[in-house]
C-alpha cells in the first residue's frame, strides 16, 4: 500500500468520479469541481511561465519590439470580455484564421488529397502468394472497389438508381465496416483507460496486484 499522500488523494478522487456510475452524488460533484479548479489554475500558471513569459515578456525586456505586435493582438482578443468593444477581437481572430488557412491549405492538399490519391492507386495484379487471402492483389482490388463505391455514395448530383445506386449501396457497406472498425477501436481505447485506472487502484495505491 502506498505511503504517498498524493497517491491517496488520487485514489479517493478516482473512486469519487467512478461513483457517478451508481448515481449522481455530492462526492462526484466535489471531485468534478476539484478537477476543473485545479486544471484551470495549473494551466494558467503553466501557460504564463512556459509561453507568455519566455516567448513574449522576455523578448520585450530584451528590447525586441517586434513582439509588441503579438502583445497588441493578444490584448485586442481580450476585448471580447467587454460587450461594447467586443468587435475589436475580430481583428486578431481574422489574423489567426488567415495564418492557419494559409499554412494548412497547401499542406492539407499534399497530405490528404495528393498523398491519399497516390496511396489509393495500387496495382491490381499480383494474385500469387501462399493462398488467395494473402495475395496483395485481392486486398488492393477490394480497397479500390471500396474507394470507388464510397465516392459514388457521396455523389449526390445523380439519383442513386440502377447500377449507380447499386454501386452506392456497396459504398454503404464499406462505410459501415469503417464505422464498425471505429466503434471497436473506441471501445478498446476506453477499456484500456479503465484498465489503467484499475491498475492504479489495485497496484500503485493499494499494492494488491503486482
Amino acid at each position: 500500500m502506498s505511503t504517498e499522500i498524493g497517491i491517496w488523494v488520487a485514489g479517493f478522487l478516482t473512486l469519487a468520479i467512478m461513483s457517478f456510475l451508481y448515481k449522481d452524488n455530492p462526492v462526484y460533484k466535489a471531485a468534478e469541481a476539484i478537477f476543473l479548479g485545479v486544471s484551470a489554475g495549473y494551466w494558467t500558471v503553466y501557460m504564463f511561465f512556459n509561453v507568455v513569459k519566455p516567448l513574449l515578456i522576455d523578448n520585450l525586456v530584451k528590447g525586441n519590439f517586434w513582439y509588441l505586435i503579438p502583445l497588441v493582438l493578444g490584448l485586442m482578443m481580450l476585448a471580447r470580455l467587454l460587450p461594447n468593444i467586443g468587435w475589436i477581437s475580430r481583428w486578431p481572430l481574422a489574423f489567426v484564421i488567415g495564418i492557419t488557412a494559409g499554412l494548412n491549405f497547401y499542406a492539407f492538399l499534399a497530405s490528404d488529397v495528393i498523398g491519399q490519391i497516390e496511396g489509393a492507386i495500387k496495382p491490381l495484379n499480383n494474385w500469387g502468394g501462399e493462398h488467395l487471402l494473402k495475395s496483395q492483389g485481392l486486398w488492393n482490388t477490394l480497397a479500390s472497389i471500396g474507394v470507388i463505391s464510397t465516392l459514388v455514395y457521396f455523389f449526390f448530383s445523380k439519383e442513386h438508381k440502377g447500377l449507380f445506386g447499386k454501386t452506392a449501396g456497396i459504398g454503404i457497406l464499406f462505410i459501415m465496416v469503417g464505422f464498425g472498425g471505429s466503434f471497436g477501436y473506441t471501445v478498446m481505447a476506453r477499456i484500456s483507460l479503465l484498465i489503467g485506472r484499475m491498475y492504479f487502484i489495485f497496484s500503485t495505491w493499494l499494492g494488491l496486484a503486482s
Binding site: 497530405s111 496511396g119 469503417g178 478498446m188 481505447a189 484500456s192
Partner: peptide
C-alpha cells in the same frame, strides 16, 4: 496513437506517408 485515432491514421500508413 490511442485506439480512437487508429481508423483515421491507417490511410497514412497505407499510402506510405
Amino acid at each position: 496513437c490511442t485506439g480512437v485515432m487508429v481508423p483515421e491514421s491507417y490511410p497514412y500508413l497505407n499510402s506510405g506517408q
